[in-house]
């Protein structure tokens, strides 16, 4: 069983004091709703680094660059593909010879390779943020306060029910409007 208590702060100084006090008392399940990605607040919060870069962006980029090189090679008729895969499903094995170049001429495929890398990195990064943030939040967040997108900060503390009185006291002492 856990209890969640939130405090609305009108200023960043009181919020940072409250975060330090709470961390000192062993309350580490903290999060803050705020109008900007404030570096000082994010550094003070005990939250893990985001995996979006390697879990989503890198995966998207690797997939894209692979697709961008391999798909044109396949479509232009890779000889080894023709040997093992029936012509009806491998791009036909037409072997489109253009400009007297080899069927699989890698230099021109750098362009699709690069563009697909960028495309899939971007799409996966966007999806990554959506997934990691649990968006869309259709029913909203019970601790959300409209002022958090303007000039207030909402500190959310998840703690054991018996500690909730102490947390509320710390929040109030730091100048928060406790909810």
């Amino acid at each position: 069983m856990t209890a969640t208590i939130s405090g609305v702060f009108a200023g960043r100084d009181g919020l940072l004091d409250a975060i330090e006090t709470l961390k000192g008392k062993g309350h580490m399940a903290l999060d803050v709703m705020m109008p900007v990605p404030d570096h000082e607040v994010l550094d003070a919060l005990p939250i893990p680094p985001t995996p979006v870069n390697w879990l989503f962006s890198l995966a998207g980029g690797l997939f894209g660059v692979g697709l961008g090189f391999m798909f044109p090679a396949w479509a232009h008729g890779l000889s080894f593909v023709n040997e093992v895969v029936p012509a009806s499903i491998n791009g036909g094995g037409f072997g489109q010879i253009t400009g007297g170049k080899p069927l699989v001429s890698w230099p021109p495929f750098f362009v699709p390779g690069f563009e697909m890398m960028v495309l899939f990195t971007g799409i996966l990064t966007f999806l990554g943020v959506v997934v990691l943030c649990g968006l869309p939040q259709r029913h909203g967040d019970p601790h959300f306060d409209d002022r958090a997108t303007e000039d207030h900060y909402v500190l959310i503390v998840t703690t054991a029910p018996e500690s909730s009185a102490e947390v509320a006291r710390i929040l109030a002492a730091a100048g928060a409007e406790v909810k």
Partner: peptide, 27 residues
Amino acid sequence: FGWTGRGTHWQHYRKAYLIFAGIATPL
């Protein structure tokens, strides 16, 4: 998407924004 501006969300957002800027530049 029902954005609330949680610190954990901003953490993902900031990194993703940097990646977007990084890929848009060579693009």
